[in-house]
Structure formats: C-alpha cells, structure tokens
C-alpha cells in the first residue's frame, strides 16, 4: 500500500485529479488533505496536471512509511511501495 498526502488548495487540485485517472488509485480526503492511495505505485504525470515548478515541487505534504518517492522531476511524481 502506498499513501500520498497532498494539501487541498486550488493549485494542487489537478495533482489529485490526475492521480485519480489511474483506476488502481483511490483519492479520498483526510481533513483538508487529499489522501491518495494504491496497492502498488502512484504515478502522476506532471504535464497532465498543468503544474509549473514552484507548485509541482512543493505539492507533497506526506508519504506514509510503506511508500517512497522514487521519481519527482519535470516529468512525473512516482511513489512506490517499499
């Protein structure tokens, strides 16, 4: 299981929306955070989100210990199960 938290502010909504396009990924809420979960990897395409670098590189609020960021660059954010 991988769990990624993203703060629910206007600039970050597209991050959650793009994540949810993968049927293996579930997007819920915990308070004002998007709680993005999957049994396997979570992969979010940066261009699909429309985020530019200031938001893109600061959009992650937390990654639970059963997952780890393995890619966070201009192309994608990827969280893999540990």
């Amino acid at each position: 299981m991988t769990t990624l938290y993203v703060l629910d502010v206007p600039e970050n909504v597209a991050v959650a929306t793009v994540a949810e396009e993968d049927p293996a990924v579930t997007v819920g809420h915990r308070g004002d955070y998007f709680e993005i979960t999957a049994d396997g990897p979570i992969v979010i395409d940066r261009r699909a989100t429309g985020c530019r670098h200031a938001v893109w590189y600061s959009c992650v609020a937390g990654v639970a210990r059963d997952g780890r960021i393995t890619q966070h660059d201009k192309n994608a954010l990827r969280v893999d199960p540990v």
Binding site: T3, Y5, R30, G31, D32, Y33, V60, A61, G62, V63, A64, R65, I69
Partner: peptide
C-alpha cells in the same frame, strides 16, 4: 515527508 504523513494520519 514520512513523519508528516504520520502526523496527518494521527492528528487530522
């Protein structure tokens, strides 16, 4: 980020 995820899970 791992510690913050724990705080989100426990406090929010």
């Amino acid at each position: 980020l791992a510690r913050k995820a724990e705080l989100i899970a426990s406090r929010v």
